[in-house]
């Protein structure tokens, strides 16, 4: 456990040293400047529009940065032969995977709540200028939890791909593919229930069902609309979404560990 935590600590330190982290910080300051501009463009329900912008920006920034970081640091490990060095030490391969995972997730946690903490005061200030819709500060930070679970799942998927291949570009496309499928699968399932969907060939429907049961349903973590408009706020469904995310992440991570144990590292 000590080695896992030590690796996690090193991962966080490496992530903070990355230039992309500072770029995101600057982008966040620019996003904050965009809030008053957005305010002046908004016709109605100002708090909702500003909330939508703040949460969407946080979502986008964290996803892009984490994907970049995971790929970049993994590539660095391979290029500088750090990975071979680490594996030659008396450290279990699984500790490396768990340590990296914990480090990335912990860094994502800092990033998410840091960005939200910067944006919330400005959103709150402008929302109070035209309070024609409710403003729930608690929901901002609750959204951060869902985003964190989604990021953790994607990080686990990235580590899984990196366990399969040493080419980070392949891993990046793999993660991007999972992201796209994960977010569109709900719509596809809905389409299959329509008249046009029912007329699809049986083989196509079977493939879609298989894909549905293999790929993670990331749409469960897209709770922005629910929080902004107070729709679908049933506590049980939110809890089940979180539980789903945690379970799926654990399974993917264990898969990554199993594959990494047998991976040829050279």
């Amino acid at each position: 456990m000590k080695r896992v935590i030590e690796l996690a600590r090193i991962t966080v330190k490496q992530a903070i040293k990355e230039r992309s982290f500072y770029v995101i910080l600057i982008a966040t300051l620019l996003a904050v400047l965009a809030v008053p501009v957005l305010y002046s463009f908004t016709m109605f329900e100002v708090p909702r529009v500003l909330a939508g912008f703040a949460l969407s920006y946080t979502n986008f920034a964290v996803l892009i940065l984490m994907l970049f970081l995971v790929m970049n640091l993994s590539q660095t490990d391979l290029d500088r032969k750090t990975l071979q060095y680490v594996i030659s030490l008396p450290i279990r391969r699984r500790d490396y995977v768990f340590g990296r995972f914990l480090g990335f997730v912990f860094f994502a946690c800092i990033l998410i709540f840091f960005i939200l903490a910067i944006m919330v005061p400005f959103v709150a200030l402008f929302s109070r200028m035209r309070p024609d819709a409710p403003f729930y500060i608690g929901y901002y930070f609750l959204y951060g939890v869902f985003l964190l679970i989604e990021v953790a799942l994607l990080v686990a998927i990235a580590l899984l791909f990196l366990s399969l291949t040493s080419r980070t570009i392949v891993s990046m496309f793999g993660v991007a593919g999972c992201y796209i499928v994960g977010h569109t699968m709900d719509e596809v399932a809905e389409f299959l229930r329509t008249g046009a969907g029912m007329n699809m060939p049986v083989f196509s429907k079977a493939v879609i069902q298989v894909v549905r049961y293999i790929f993670p349903n990331l749409a469960l973590f897209d709770v922005k609309t629910a929080f902004i408009y107070g729709k679908g706020m049933d506590g049980m469904s939110l809890f089940l979404s979180l539980l789903y995310g945690v379970l799926y992440t654990v399974i993917v991570l264990l898969l990554a560990v199993v594959l990494f144990e047998k991976k040829e590292v050279y």
Binding site: G52, S56, F60, I180, E187, F191, K224, T225, I228
Partner: peptide
Amino acid sequence: PSFEKWSGFEFTFLKAF
């Protein structure tokens, strides 16, 4: 419209705005 929604992923609100 359905494709616009699919291709919006998690950013459909921003796209609507």
